[in-house]
Amino acid sequence: MSGSESEAPYRDRSATDDATTDDARRAFEGGIRPRRFGAWYVAEHRFRVMWSYAQTILVTGFGEPFIYLYAMGVGLATLVDRNLSLEAGGVGYLVFVAPALLCSAALTTAVIEFSYPVLLGYKWNPTFTGMHSGPISPGQIVDGLVISVVVRLAATVAIYFGFMLLFGAVPSAAGWLAVPIATLTGMAFGTLLMAYASTIREDSGQLAMVQRLVVLPLTLFSGTFFPLSQLPWFLQWIGWISPLWHGTELTRVVTFGYAEPVWLTVLHVVVLIAMTVVGWAWARRIAVRRLAA
């Protein structure tokens, strides 16, 4: 404990830390489970909230993949396949575009779960303050949010992947790896957004701006609907910093054996994990600053 003491050398602790009383013993006991499982309790809370709008989640969860795969993969594909022999690895447009749709869906879901719920929890309906009044630490609140979104993402992505199988968009046997990859893609962008959303104290439409100026360009220019190489060179950097590009390319490798150098595949994984970790850690720091000031 000497570490924490050196942080605040002039605090008087002479008579204030008497851990031998019954009260103190009871407090230690009361602290055990929250310290250990606090993040899971937060996730439990989030699941209950999600359950309260389960209908919406289910309708979008099943409706979206069907609509998108049908429109892009079947409708648009007839046009594309007739006119182009793509640089898309020699597969049909449906197979080419499906991984991008999958990763975009993960990204969109992550954007929803990491933006307004965060603003809500800190400010509009400060449930985070409520959790922190209990034995939950700011870091655990962030962790719990992350756990709940991972689960929601994995479920959304798994349903999407099921539709991809139905549409015949997954030729490769290793295709199922698309589920964890797309989930990771959502988290890579989502945790960064969560950190940014945590810094918003006065809402003046920042999240709507993020939606228009970040999410939309990413969705269009991340090698999603057409390969990145089709973009002029001065726009290609968007792909390199885009978790969606890294995620989509990686998914393509596993769903249809998209040919790319091994180092690039490794880079995709590294970038996605790094973004997730940075966003997560940053959000935890901000949580401490905002809740325990």
């Binding site: 605040a8 204030t16 009383t21």
Partner: peptide, 10 residues
Amino acid sequence: GLDPDRHGPD
């Protein structure tokens, strides 16, 4: 009997 700096959750 506890210092909140060190034993917040408890």
